[in-house]
Amino acid sequence: MHEMGICQSILDASFEAAEAEGATRIKEIRISVGELTEVVDFALQFAFESLSPGTLAEGGKLVVNRIPAKSRCPSCGTEFEHDRFETTCPECGNPFNENIAGRELLIDSVDVEKDD
């Protein structure tokens, strides 16, 4: 259940950004989570529902963009998407490839409202 700590970090960064803009409400927080992380959407949403009430994010949404795993083959230069267990280069069969996507844990943007 490290999602609780991850969600708190998401909220802290969102509050900081929202307060800097003088926002009164956070409508939506957009994050990107790579397929190679072990961060579970359900647990993140549960954490968001538990941690957001009474804050600027109360009633807001957490939108998760999942990013597929991708590697680059250093021998032939091919970039390819793959699952966890089959990371061999599909072009030349090299098993030692450089991961270039799928480990993301990023906060992309925060959609806020201001009182005029």
Binding site: I6, S9, I10, D12, A13, S14, A17, A18, E21, A23, I31, L105, L106, I107, D108, S109, V110, D111, V112, E113, K114
Partner: peptide, 14 residues
């Protein structure tokens, strides 16, 4: 209003 953040969630830990 959308605020672009584009930073690691675990920024503080990093």
């Amino acid at each position: 209003m959308e605020i672009d953040l584009s930073k690691p969630i675990l920024d503080r830990n990093e």
